[in-house]
């Protein structure tokens, strides 16, 4: 396994008062564990505030967890110093949602793509150019892009530049945080196909974060559903229709399906997700769960394996049918 997160908890302190005392915590992640197998894609879904981006940033060692452990390629990197971490950083790169703000507008595409090679002191000037042209070709950009600036490209093209930058060091793992959500539908499909093509060609492993279940299911082998800093369900994407967690059901039911004849029972959750500053007791989902009972307020449900490769964090899982068997 290439990436392993073990029991990650992250609390962000909230400063307040005259002396900037810590007055509370944002419980961004609570005891989250996940593994990403080499060459596979794991999809992470959940709504804003569920902790998916925090988890990505911890996995990238951009921020430190409050507790827990991150293993990359068999090495514990949780507490490695920046100096020791640097050679390893080549192995994991990130793609961001907004290609507009993640590319330096004053640098040409050539400069943007050469920078990682310089930072990691790889090869020299001539070699750099060759490598840049090689990667530009891989992501479907013409060599003419080399001398252009990011603003001269459309949204989809810019995301290709973002992908090219992540690929410059031939990483093993790519963490993609909502890489297609800002793109138009017709362009979104191009980028998804490109990511899949690159995965085959370069033996990449993806941790793919998104809120669109259709996209996540398409690209991932395994789907992890998060809510308010915890994992609710982990399921093979082939089996998504067998999802058992009531929150996964709500997410599935909320996906607008492009078929006007489709009649389905909608599961509409009431209210908003609670604040992660003061998460509900017991199961964090109980305040919006249609199945909730007294016990859900008292006990935190463990993420139990109900079938091979299918884990659910729900105390009442025996009473909840798979999504496909809910009445239409």
């Amino acid at each position: 396994m290439l990436l392993q997160a073990k029991n990650i908890t992250k609390k962000f302190p909230i400063k307040g008062g005259f002396f900037g005392r810590t007055v509370g915590h944002v419980h961004a992640l609570n005891d989250v564990s996940l593994t990403v197998e080499s060459g596979k894609t794991v999809g992470l879904v959940g709504e804003s505030g569920c902790g998916k981006t925090t988890l990505a940033r911890i996995a990238m060692r951009l921020i430190d967890p409050t507790s827990g452990e991150i293993n990359f390629d068999g090495k514990d990197i949780t507490t490695l110093s920046e100096r020791k971490l640097r050679p390893l950083r080549r192995g994991f790169q990130m793609i961001f949602q907004d290609p507009y703000s993640s590319l330096n507008p004053r640098m040409t595409v050539g400069q943007i793509l050469t920078e990682p090679l310089q930072v990691h002191k790889i090869a020299n000037g001539k070699k750099h150019r060759e490598q840049v042209f090689g990667i530009l070709d891989k992501v479907g950009l013409s060599p003419a892009a080399f001398h252009k600036y990011p603003h001269q490209f459309s949204g989809g093209q810019r995301q290709r530049i973002g992908i090219a930058r992540a690929l410059m060091l031939y990483p093993k793992l790519i963490i993609a945080d909502e890489p297609v959500s800002a793109l138009d539908v017709s362009v979104q499909a191009q980028i998804i196909n490109l990511l899949e093509k690159l995965q085959n060609e370069m033996k990449l492993t993806y941790l793919f974060i998104a809120h669109d279940l259709k996209v996540v299911r398409h690209i991932s082998q395994k789907i992890i559903v998060m809510y308010l800093g915890r994992i609710m369900e982990e399921i093979d994407s082939e089996d998504l229709s067998q999802a058992r967690h009531p929150y996964t059901h709500a997410l599935l039911s909320a996906v607008p399906i492009p078929d006007p004849n489709l009649k389905r029972e909608k599961i509409i959750l009431s209210g908003d997700p609670p604040s992660p500053i003061n998460p509900p007791s017991g199961c964090v989902f109980h305040t919006r769960c249609p199945y909730a009972q007294q016990i859900c307020k008292e006990k935190v449900p463990p993420l139990d394996e109900i079938k091979p490769n299918h884990r659910v964090a729900c105390l009442l899982v025996d009473q909840v049918k798979p999504f496909s068997e809910l009445k239409k």
């Binding site: 499909a189 191009q190 998804i192 196909n193 899949e196 279940l213 259709k214 398409h218 998504l240 996906v255």
Partner: peptide, 14 residues
């Protein structure tokens, strides 16, 4: 548009 439940694994039309 990727389908939510139909068979997957095919390249998306773009």
């Amino acid at each position: 548009i990727p389908p939510l439940f139909d068979e997957k694994g095919k390249e998306l039309y773009s």
